[in-house]
Structures are given as C-alpha cells and as structure tokens.
Simulated assay, not measured.
Amino acid sequence: MVQQLKRIAEKLQQANSIAVLTGAGVSTASGIPDFRSSQGLWTENHAREYYMSNRYFYKDPEDFWDKYKSIFRLKLLKNYQPNHVHDFLKKLEDHAKDVAVITQNVDGLHQLSGSSRVIEYHGTLNQATCPACGTSYSLDYVMAYDIPHCQESGCGDVLKPDVVLFGDMITAHDQAEAVIDKAEVLLVMGTSLFVTPFNLLPEYAAYLGKLDTIMINGEPTDKDYLFDYVVHDDLSRTVKELNKLME
C-alpha cells in the first residue's frame, strides 16, 4: 500500500493537468451522509428515487418540496464546511496544476474550498430556477418559504431545484469529457461509480488510453478494472498520507 501511494503521489506531482471525479465519499468528512454507499440513506427507502424525480415534481410540486428539503437536509446545508479532501484538491491547484473537478456532489463545498474549475455534474442544492421564466433564486430564498414560488410579475410558478432530478437530462457530460481529453491524470475519489452516465467517464478515459488513472474509494466498485492504481481505504486517511508524501 505504501509503495502504491508513493507512485500515486509521484503521478500527481508530475502531472500538469489533472481531472478529478468526486462523489459523496468526499463530503462525508464534512458530516454530509453518503447517500449511495452500502450504508447510505438511499438504501433505506428506494421510493426516494420516485419522489426526487422530475415526474413527481410536476405531478405534485408542493409535496415534492417538502420531501426534497427533508431528504437533502437543506436546513443544515450552510453548517457544512469543506474538509481536508476538498483542501487537498485546492492545494494541487495552488501548486500550478491545472485541476478540474467534475463532481456528483450538489453541496457546493468544492467551490467553498476555493477550487476554481468545478463542473457540477448533478447540479447544486444552492439554487433553484423558475421552469416558466428561467429566473434563478438563492438557497436563502428557497428556505424562506415552504413552497418557493417565482416572484416575477405575472409568473408565480413553483421553483424547480437546480439539482438534476431523476428523469432530468444530464447537460454536463460533454463538458466533462472535454476536460478528460486534456488531462494527464484522472483521479477518482469517493464514488461508487454506480450512477450512469457519470460512471461512463472512467470508461472514456480508458478508451483514450493516454491518462494515468487512479481510484481511491472506501470499498470496491464494478469499475475498478479500468484503473492503473486502485486504493480501497478510508478516503480521509489516504489523502492525509498523500499530502505527507507530496510535501
């Protein structure tokens, strides 16, 4: 394990351009539950996938918002802060690295840590938009009302969160592939790679055949075979070790 971490540290130090894929495991050290792990909240009630769908939003927007705020714990969102995993990625960028983060996370912690290039593949909890007129509203506005409506004159539609709901189109995939096209290293952290089409991005990197590919996750994934380096260990502990090796 130590030798493998040394090789990973060397690859990260040598690379000028790094594409990073992150999942819920990156935010767990900030106190945000990992919804998709084997112990995650999504396993408790699969009906959440129905309630967090665009179909249910348009069917019953009032009840949708009640469930959405509960499932995503929106009242607590501003209490969460970036952790040392987020800071590690920012540190890579500070060392003159071209680092682009492609994240499944919707909590905004990569931006809060200072990362300058973040693609929010599944959207963000920090904003909602009127589906009728396109006006955007902040999280503060969303939390001020049980059911947030558009305030534009003559509109009044119920706002739709900027999180990608089940059934929504993914709009960031081509942008993510373009980042991988230019990268020398693909670093994947804290994701089970369960969700499609996000889990196609490592396959795209493997197809290109020109990147060093690194997977760091707390448990095995079905995509581990795609990577040159695979670490199954606590992400926080692994990042601390990498940080020491790269000092």
Rank of each mutant, 00 (worst) to 15 (best):
M1G: 13
Q3R: 04
Q4K: 10
R7A: 10
I8R: 03
A9D: 00
E10G: 00
E10R: 07
L12W: 04
I18H: 03
T22M: 07
A24L: 05
V26R: 04
S27N: 09
S27T: 12
A29N: 05
S30F: 09
I32M: 02
I32D: 01
P33M: 00
F35I: 01
F35E: 00
G40N: 04
W42P: 00
T43P: 03
T43K: 11
E44H: 07
N45W: 03
R48N: 13
R48K: 04
Y50V: 14
S53N: 06
R55C: 02
Y56T: 10
Y56L: 03
Y56G: 05
F57M: 04
Y58T: 06
D63G: 01
K67Y: 05
S70E: 14
F72L: 12
L77C: 12
L77P: 10
Q81I: 12
D87P: 06
D87N: 15
L92W: 01
H95M: 05
D98P: 00
D98W: 03
I102W: 04
T103H: 07
T103A: 10
Q104R: 06
N105T: 06
V106T: 12
D107E: 11
S113P: 09
G114Q: 12
S115T: 15
I119F: 09
Y121S: 02
G123Y: 03
G123M: 02
G123V: 01
L125S: 14
Q127T: 12
P131E: 05
A132D: 04
C133L: 02
C133T: 04
S136K: 14
L139V: 06
D140L: 05
D140C: 04
D140M: 01
D140V: 07
Y141T: 05
M143N: 08
P148S: 13
Q151P: 00
G154K: 08
G156M: 06
D162R: 01
V164H: 05
V164A: 09
L165S: 00
G167Q: 09
D168P: 03
T171V: 11
A172R: 07
H173E: 12
E177G: 01
V179P: 08
D181W: 07
D181L: 03
K182E: 11
F194D: 11
T196F: 15
F198G: 05
N199D: 15
L211K: 13
D212A: 09
T213F: 14
I214K: 10
I214G: 05
M215A: 13
M215Y: 15
P220C: 13
P220A: 11
T221H: 10
T221P: 14
D222P: 13
K223R: 15
D224R: 14
Y225Q: 15
F227H: 13
D228R: 12
D228I: 03
Y229S: 08
V230H: 14
V230P: 14
V231C: 11
D233K: 10
S236Y: 11
R237S: 09
R237G: 02
T238D: 07
V239W: 10
K240A: 10
K240L: 13
L242W: 05
L242Q: 08
K244W: 09
L245A: 08
M246Y: 01
